[in-house]
């Protein structure tokens, strides 16, 4: 640092004297293009050629746009359009880029030069003057002196943004009971996703897995996806001997047919990977694994709650129906889910 600038404390830095003096910037290395006009002219031609290539690239891109109109159902037209416009643009950009850099490297001077830096800190004099300005402004406005004005202003500044936050209050409705309830209710038939065709118990053979929605979901006028996002269910039939059921929930299944929420209790991905023989359900997003034969207990991965079970039975016509809604919230755990 130059003499005028402030010396800062070096802190814990050790002050070791360097064994040699700073030799200064290395001498300039002469390039071929500096020495020989012939080389310089070659470089010039190369640069010009690259700029020329760039023009060709632009022309290819323009040609690509017009040569491949979209033909409905013919993906090769879209492919060619994208390919040739892309390659043409790439060529035209690379031509300019390589040309300009080659120019800089071969023909523009490459002597390294040194420029002095100055500390960010203003000089003592400037700082003193700045302080003067601030004091003057303070005096003229009475900012420090007039406490009442100052404090009420702080108050006003603290309060004025609040409406700006409150105004976003209608971004979404107040959370009511919606997270605790789904479309399922007593007697709702289990239907196939996405067709909405109801499922008979006899359709569900051992080892089968059905992706299920409540009957009537497809006919909803609104909030179809919101309802589906909560009501999606996985229906599986296992050999009843393999099923280890909670005695309290023994009548929630029907002859080895069990229905569990498909929404992961970790962060809500559809847990849809069913392994027929291990009876494991795997979430493809974060690998939570649930043991379907053992009331969907978590056996691996970051989830903490078992998947909620949908109590089911059959109606008079043999269709599978829900006995009720889920008895606990489906999907990711949230703060007041147990209230």
């Amino acid at each position: 640092m130059s003499e005028l600038e402030k010396r800062y404390s070096p802190g814990l830095a050790a002050q070791t004297k360097r064994p040699i003096e700073d030799p200064g910037i290395e001498p300039h290395r002469v390039r071929m293009t500096d020495k020989s006009e012939k080389h310089a002219r070659t470089a010039e031609r190369q640069i010009a050629a690259m700029f020329g290539v760039s023009v060709i690239g632009a022309i290819i891109a323009i040609w690509g746009f017009f040569a491949f109109p979209i033909v409905d159902g013919d993906l090769s037209a879209t492919r060619n359009n994208s390919l040739w416009m892309g390659l043409g643009m790439a060529l035209s950009m690379l031509g300019i880029g390589f040309g300009a850099v080659h120019w800089a490297k071969t023909l523009m001077p490459d002597n390294e030069v040194s420029e002095l830096r100055h500390q960010a800190r203003s000089s003592e004099e400037t700082r003193a003057q700045a302080l003067e300005v601030v004091k003057l402004a303070d005096g003229e406005s009475g900012f420090t002196r007039r406490k009442l004005i100052r404090r009420t202003m702080y108050g006003a500044l603290a309060f004025f943004p609040i409406p700006g936050i409150i105004i976003f209050g209608d971004l979404g409705p107040v959370v009511g009971d919606s997270l605790r309830h789904t479309m399922w209710k007593s007697g709702t038939r289990l239907a196939k996703d996405p067709t909405g065709i109801p499922i008979k118990a006899s359709d569900v053979t051992i080892g089968s897995v059905f992706h299920v929605i409540p009957e009537g979901l497809e006919d909803l006028e609104e909030h179809k996806l919101e309802e589906k996002a909560k009501a999606a269910v996985l229906l599986v039939r296992v050999n009843p001997e393999d099923l280890n059921e909670d005695p309290a929930k023994a009548d929630w299944s029907y002859q080895g047919i069990v229905a569990y929420s498909k929404i992961c209790t970790h962060v809500g991905c559809p847990v849809a990977l069913y392994e027929q023989h291990t009876h494991h359900l795997l979430c493809p997003c974060h690998q939570s694994t649930f043991d379907l034969a053992n009331h969907c207990e978590v056996v691996f991965g970051p989830a903490s709650r078992p998947l909620p079970q949908l109590p089911i039975t059959v109606d008079a016509e043999g269709y599978l129906v829900a006995q009720s809604d889920f008895l606990e919230p489906v999907g990711p755990s949230f703060w007041d889910m147990r209230k």
Binding site: S2, G86, M93, G97
Partner: peptide, 29 residues
Amino acid sequence: DNVVGYPLMPVYVAKAGGFFFLVFGVIAA
């Protein structure tokens, strides 16, 4: 207390300007 390198004009204008086109060209390709 110093900085050693090349001047903005013309060397860096050419290098950095050209480099923009190179980045664009690579992405386009």
